[in-house]
Design a protein around this nucleic acid. Structure first.
Length: 795
DNA sequence: ACTGGCACTTAGCAACAAAGGG
DNA sequence: CCCTTTGTTGCTAAGTGCCAGT
């Protein structure tokens, strides 16, 4: 580093030493990766040969999650494998669209067979009255939530509930206090319960809010659930479905057969042709074989799974052809399952669980060029499962003949069930559904969802566990808004720092701020696809152009980010940034870290000093939300009609999605549906022309006749024309919207980055019904915002 | 300081369900 | 009413960031 340091800086020299270690190590580690890299590059190069032009044209390519590199034309040494892979890749692109769906379908989607878990009877039992020794600590509420009335009802009441309610009434709902006292809680007598369910619901809801807010990392006081639903057991293939090895029929042992079916189900998928996939699969498959099989089956290419594959296709087909009754039956069964296992009781409130079904076994398919693709994702057994619930809750029973790995009572976490997954060794969790609030109760009478609460007061009382967190996230982003100027000035200053580390930090932060890049934690090599974020950018990921297309100091980014989605962008930057980048890149290999003295820990620590709660990802939230707000301001034309306004909204949303690089593969049927729409438009135009003609002649008649009747006709024709015009315009808007949205995914930003209050305010301001922007799930998730934001809300 | 583990958020795509057109 | 098209939900991988232990 010394060499690339600015001259004469001691600090730098010092740094250099340590750095060089780091550097070296990294370098070493990366060596072989680099090789892989090159291969990829080569592949990609070839692939993208025809149009190596930028962005637009190549977008399709990006889609496929493969790495596409432009630079580096050097490595030509790779052989056959590459070629194959290359081919595969191309194929994959295409096939992805066509083959995929089919195959997937056959996958067990769940529940043909009854869950292993045994259930317990009573519903009533669900609600375990809180023990006295457990007292809810409430967090202070600042507002009055009384307005919010849920509709659900259920279960018996508890004294606490009642009491709380009473208390509330007395106090006039405002209490903010952390815990008022639990003593108080005890006093109220309980009224009858069954009858007034409605009331009860309310109470419950209210109480729930209260109890949800605990201090100091406590997530709940009471938690009870039924445990997970396991994947249905493997059903052996019928005798007539044969597997062939080297042309000869072979009967597989059950385990080996099961794993073979996983592969067979994916046969149409391109990745079953990928070297890595096949290698990983075969290795894991062999582990499941009995010795005899191992001895015989030594070459995957000699395996013939086609009968299996056809069998599954037929099954899928059959499922599609099922009669209505059969389908209905299945549906009912699923609903029953949901009712039974899909909810838990958390602090007296019945909550929807997000993923109560354990992930079924299968072959792992990571995203992008994942080194572990094709590995066997093993079946999860009760013995792998850790159950989390409160001590006073009824512990779910494991399936007969089994036991849980562990039952714990950790109220500092939100998960109900966890297990360790075998591919990456990471922990998987069963948690609550983020959008879930009150859902219909098992009694069935509760009203569907959550009626938009009286818009009157309840300010933020509405946040539920997740909702509140969500809200907090946006509040943090708003705090950033207040000091972002200062921070920007500071990092600009830091570009001049004598310390390399500070400069790197400042430049990285600039990218994060300006381009909404992700932080870029380090990842273990060989464990995951090679993707990067800001701090983990490598020299090979950027190209510097002192001048490009008439602009000065352009940085060209090209790397794979989260989910192996390509980030490609050419950005003019300030001269100082540019010079710094040149400095950072001096004497480095392409595979070296661009910011070799920086990592997310260092960066976030610094951010924490600048503002409490500030981390790299807050910038994404902030920039996304502020962009939406600005764009809405800019794009909304007061006089436009609702569809046009919605288009404006979508455009603003799109601007954010582009900023955050939220892409999607163009829908498979995109071209077709576009054409359909166009023909609709044409038809509409014709209709309109006809109607206009009619109108004209009617007018002519009216001029002559002047009687009331003809006048009326004119009026009605006029209306018809108007109606058609509106319809046409709506269609045209739709076409524009769709076209512009071809490969942009709006959902992610809407759900995760945009302060919903901005949207709510905008809707209120322009009279756009909120349902036009948020669907039901979204409205549930953002209920707090819908409730609290008025049209003047400013992010 | 560094690392790995853990908890929780963010992500895109496929399956499924509902809506719309003939 | 059937079939296609579009919107919604489910699924689970892949990130972020904090924390404890060294």
């Amino acid at each position: 580093m010394g060499t690339r340091e600015t001259s004469g800086d001691d600090g730098i020299v010092l740094n250099f030493d340590c750095d060089s270690h780091k550097h070296k190590d990294k370098h070493k580690d990366r060596e072989h990766r680099h090789k892989e890299h090159k291969k990829d590059k080569e592949k990609d190069r070839e692939k993208s040969k025809h149009s190596n032009s930028e962005h637009k044209d190549s977008e399709k390519k990006h889609k496929e999650k493969e790495k596409t590199k432009h630079k580096d034309g050097s490595s030509e040494k790779h052989k056959d494998k590459h070629k194959d892979r290359d081919k595969e890749k191309r194929k994959e692109e295409k096939i992805r669209a066509s083959g995929d769906a089919k195959i997937k379908k056959e996958k067990e989607n769940g529940f043909s067979s009854p869950p292993l878990i045994k259930d317990e009877p009573e519903d009533d039992g669900y609600f375990a009255p809180p023990r006295e020794d457990i007292k809810p600590l409430k967090r202070p509420r600042d507002e009055d939530d009384a307005d919010y009335k849920p509709k659900k009802i259920k279960t018996e009441d508890t004294k606490k509930e009642k009491k709380r309610k009473l208390e509330e009434e007395e106090d006039g709902k405002l209490k903010k206090p952390k815990n008022k006292d639990k003593d108080k809680d005890k006093k109220v007598p309980e009224p009858d319960n069954k009858k007034k369910k409605l009331k009860k619901e309310e109470e419950q809801k209210w109480k729930w809010w209260e109890e949800e807010r605990y201090p100091e990392g406590i997530k709940w006081k009471f938690l009870e659930h039924k445990g997970p639903v396991f994947a249905p057991p493997y059903e052996p293939l019928p005798e007539n479905v044969k597997f062939y090895y080297d042309g000869k029929v072979m009967k597989l042992s059950p385990k080996a057969e099961e794993v073979a079916t996983f592969f067979a189900k994916m046969l149409d998928h391109e990745y079953t042709t990928k070297e890595i996939f096949r290698k990983n699969f075969f290795k894991d498959w062999r582990k499941e074989m009995i010795n005899e099989e191992k001895n015989i089956i030594t070459n995957l290419s000699k395996c013939d799974f086609t009968q299996m594959s056809q069998y599954f296709k037929a099954q899928t087909e059959a499922r599609k052809q099922m009669s209505k009754e059969e389908k209905l039956k299945i549906k009912e069964e699923n609903e029953k399952l949901l009712k039974e296992y899909g909810f838990c009781i958390m602090d007296n409130h019945r909550e929807r669980i997000a993923n109560f079904k354990i992930e079924p076994p299968g072959l792992f398919r990571g995203r992008g060029n994942h080194p572990k693709m094709g590995m066997l994702k093993r079946r999860i057994m009760p013995e792998d499962i850790i159950i989390n619930c409160s001590k006073d809750a009824k512990v779910p029973s494991p399936p007969p003949g089994h036991k849980w790995k562990e039952v714990r009572h950790d109220n500092k976490v939100t998960w109900l069930v966890s297990w360790t997954e075998n591919i990456q060794g990471s922990i998987k969790y069963i948690m609550l559904n983020p959008s879930s609030r009150i859902k219909s109760s098992e009694l069935g009478y509760s009203v569907s969802v959550f009626t938009p609460p009286s818009l009157s007061n309840p300010p933020l009382a509405l946040g539920l566990l997740q909702g509140e967190k969500d809200w907090q996230k946006y509040e943090t982003a708003r705090r950033l808004k207040k000091c972002v100027d200062k921070i920007r000035n500071q990092y600009r200053e830091d570009w001049k720092s004598k310390e390399m580390k500070v400069r790197q930090r400042a430049v990285a932060l600039y990218f994060i701020d300006k381009l909404a890049l992700r932080a870029g934690n380090e990842k273990e090599e060989g464990e995951t696809a090679d993707t990067v974020g800001c701090c983990s950018l490598r020299v090979e990921h950027i190209n510097l152009h002192p001048e490009l297309d008439g602009q000065e100091y352009v940085v060209e980014f090209d790397f794979l980010g989260k989910d192996s989605i390509r980030y490609y962008n050419k950005v003019p930057v300030e001269k100082r940034v540019f010079k710094n980048l040149q400095l950072f890149m001096e004497n480095k290999q392409p595979e070296d870290d661009l910011f070799d003295r920086l990592n997310t820990g260092i960066l976030n620590k610094h951010l924490q000093d600048l503002m409490e709660g500030l981390t790299a990802k807050v910038f994404r939230t902030y920039n996304a939300s502020i962009t939406l707000q600005q764009q809405l301001k800019e794009l909304t034309a007061p006089d436009e009609n609702i569809p046009a306004k919605i288009l404006s909204y979508n455009r603003a949303n799109r601007a954010v999605a582009i900023l955050c690089n939220h892409q999607r593969a163009p829908p498979k049927t995109f071209e077709k549906s576009m054409m359909n729409l166009q023909s609709k438009i044409d038809a509409k135009k014709e209709q309109l022309a006809d109607a206009r003609r009619d109108l004209k002649s009617a007018k002519a008649d009216a001029k002559v006749l002047k009687d009331a009747k003809t006048k009326k006709v004119v009026e009605s024709k006029k209306k018809a024309v108007q109606r058609l015009e509106e319809q046409l315009m709506k269609l045209e808007v739709q076409a524009t919207d769709r076209e512009e949205n071809k490969q942009i995914a709006l959902g992610t930003s809407k759900l995760n980055y945009l302060d919903p209050r901005i949207t709510v305010a905008w809707c209120k301001k322009w009279g756009v019904p909120i349902e036009k922007i948020y669907n039901k799930t979204q409205r549930e998730k953002f209920a707090w915002a819908i409730d609290m934001a008025d049209e003047d809300y400013e992010f």
